[in-house]
Every structure is written in C-alpha cells, then in structure tokens.
C-alpha cells in the first residue's frame, strides 16, 4: 500500500474542489451565489483562481466557506458616475467650533465644542495626496471654517490645487475675518451658505433667533465682494416644497438658478431625528478631520463612520473605502443612497 504524499493530498483535494465548482457553480443561475466549503487559505486561493479563470467571482470569504457569485461582479466604475467615485471629492473639517449651536448640527458644533483644528501642514499634505489620488473638488466645512486661525492660508492651499467650496454660516463677516475673506480668490472658490427658509421662521427655529437676517446680510456682503455664493437648505422633509420659495428668494440676492443644495436632516450629532445613515447605505465622500479619515462628512463625529485614525497616507484609506463600498454594493443587501452635503 502506498501512502499519499502531501502534494498528492493537495491535488486530490483540489480536484474535488474543482469538480464541486464546475458542478455547483456551473448550475447556478447567473447573479446568484453559493457557499463553497473550504478548509484552508490555500483552498480559498484555489476557488479564487478558478473563479477568475471561468468568469465567476468571489463575493466574500467566510471562515469555512467561500461565497461564489455566478458571473462577473460589476466594478465601481460601472456603479458610480465618475464624479461620485470616492476620492474625487475631499472634505476637510477645518475645525469643530462654531459661533452657532444649531439643533440639527450633525457634528455637534457650538461655541463650546473642542475646536479640533486641522493644521495648515495637514491640510497641505492631504490636498497634495488627494490630488495624486484623483481628487478634483475640495470642500471646507466645520464648525465654522472662518473660526480657523489660518483660514485664509487653508483656502489658498486648496484653491491652488482644485476648485473649492467653503461652507459657512456667513455670520462672521466682520473685522479680521472679513479681511481674511477678502483675501480669498474669487475664481476657484464658492461660498456655500446655510439658509433653511425664505423667511426667518424655520431657519431661526433650528439655528437661533436672528440668525436668518444675519445670514442674508452675509450673503449680500459676499455677493458684493464678488464671491460666487450658493445656498444649502437643511430640511426635515421635502414635502413642504419650501425649496421653490428659497430658490426664488435666492434669486433676489443675485444667486444663479440651480445654486441650491437641499440636504435632509441626518440622525447624527445633535439631531435626535432624521434619516439614519450607515456605511452600507451611504455613498462615501472621503472626509478628513483632526481625528482621522471618515466615510462621509455627515458622520464626522460618529465613531462607526471613522475609517482611519491616521490622516496620512490618504491613498490607502481611499482604496479601502472604495473596496468596502464595492462590497456593500455587490452584496446588494441595501441600496446605498447618496447624501449630498454640497
């Protein structure tokens, strides 16, 4: 009697796996999955190799089985339009403190919030790496970015690299901050100002008494200074149709049609109600804060949304985000929704 050597054992087992794959996956309807039991990482490798060679795909690797998908899985390019590819936009939380304390603030900003300022050097490094990874749009948000001690420098770094949008409540256009604003380029920079309603009521209810009037005044100032301004409305529901009135009102401030972003209140930060967002249900928009890299700016204080505690290197984190998101889409358990912040 001869005893089988380890090589023969391996190829015998591989032959069994192969027969099973041809049989089971071959009979599987396109677009469906099956679990193929495996006993070692080497066998996972065998299944993966077989799938690549036969036009099938490994959907997931479980501890004792590989989930095989009949057919080729789509890649991110076929799922997302180019401008939504994670990494095309980079969000930077310049700081977390704010002159306001809105009741729906998704990152719990307020005058008392820990500033967690993103340093100028970090901004420069992030912007450079993001550019190398294909970023074509930059977004500055907070907190109130104008409370960043070197906001003019931050804006200069960003606008030199790519078109930049700075989110602001437009209420601090005075003194040194007004001078900082005035030093910013008019060409590559757009100011996105929060305005929730065409009249003070609703806006003031969420953001504080008198804030609507001062935001409108800020918009006028920015327009007079020659800045491109767009408006962001945060709404609990679109049912009221308030956006038509806001757009009409915005036109009276010299804001071009279409320059209105409508965002739902998300159940993040201070908001106790609003749409619930998870990594699996949210198209990622890479976001950096002093505390790391996050899935999306709307969850920039939600620990479950933190992808990395390290700001740099950025490229592997972007890759990881793409990979994870692709996994969710391929799994198809949940259809990811996009959540526009800008």
């Amino acid at each position: 009697m001869t005893t089988a050597g380890p090589d023969q054992v391996r190829s015998a087992r591989r032959a069994q796996l192969s027969i099973r794959l041809v049989d089971v996956v071959g009979r599987l309807a396109a677009g469906t999955t099956t679990l193929v039991p495996v006993e070692s990482p080497a066998e996972v490798e065998v299944v993966d190799t077989w799938c690549r060679g036969t036009g099938n795909s490994v959907l997931a690797v479980h501890p004792d089985a590989v989930e095989v998908y009949r057919g080729r899985l789509s890649d991110l390019d076929s799922i997302l339009p180019p401008d939504r590819m994670p990494g095309r936009r980079l969000w930077l939380y310049t700081n977390f403190h704010c002159n306001l304390a809105c009741d729906y603030c998704c990152v719990s900003s307020s005058p008392k919030a820990d500033p967690r300022v993103l340093g100028v050097d970090s901004v420069a490094a992030l912007v450079t790496e993001a550019g190398e990874a294909g970023a074509t749009e930059l977004f500055l948000t907070g907190g109130e970015p104008l409370m960043h001690p070197a906001i003019a420098e931050v804006v200069a770094i960003c606008t030199t690299a790519a078109p930049t949008v700075m989110l602001t409540n437009a209420m601090l256009f005075r003194g040194a901050r007004l001078r900082a604003l005035d030093s910013m380029p008019r060409e590559a920079l757009t100011l996105q100002v929060s305005l929730d309603s065409a009249t003070p009521d609703l806006h003031d209810r969420h953001r504080g008494a008198g804030t609507w009037a001062r935001a409108v005044e800020g918009i006028r100032t920015a327009r007079e200074m020659g800045f491109t301004v767009r408006i962001a409305m945060t709404v609990a529901s679109r049912a009221g149709g308030e956006e038509v009135e806001v757009e009409r009102f915005a036109a009276t401030l010299g804001i071009r049609p279409g320059q209105l972003v409508v965002r739902h209140i998300a159940k993040e930060g201070e908001a106790t109600q609003g749409i619930v967002l998870t990594r699996a249900t949210l198209v990622p928009e890479v976001c950096a804060t002093a505390d790391g890299i996050w899935w999306h700016p709307v969850g920039a204080t939600d620990e479950a949304m933190r992808v990395s505690a390290d700001l740099l290197p950025l490229r592997p984190t972007i890759e990881a985000i793409r990979e994870e998101y692709l996994g969710y889409r391929r799994r198809g358990d949940v259809l990811a929704a996009s959540f526009p912040c800008a």
Binding site: R14, A15, S18
Partner: peptide, 14 residues
C-alpha cells in the same frame, strides 16, 4: 470545455 473549466482550479493530479 469541462476539462478546461476543471483545470482552472490548478493542478488536479489528473
């Protein structure tokens, strides 16, 4: 075609 598919898993000892 069956043989080619089987071989995609690698060395089978066959």
């Amino acid at each position: 075609t069956t043989w080619q598919q089987l071989k995609q898993a690698g060395e089978l000892g066959v």
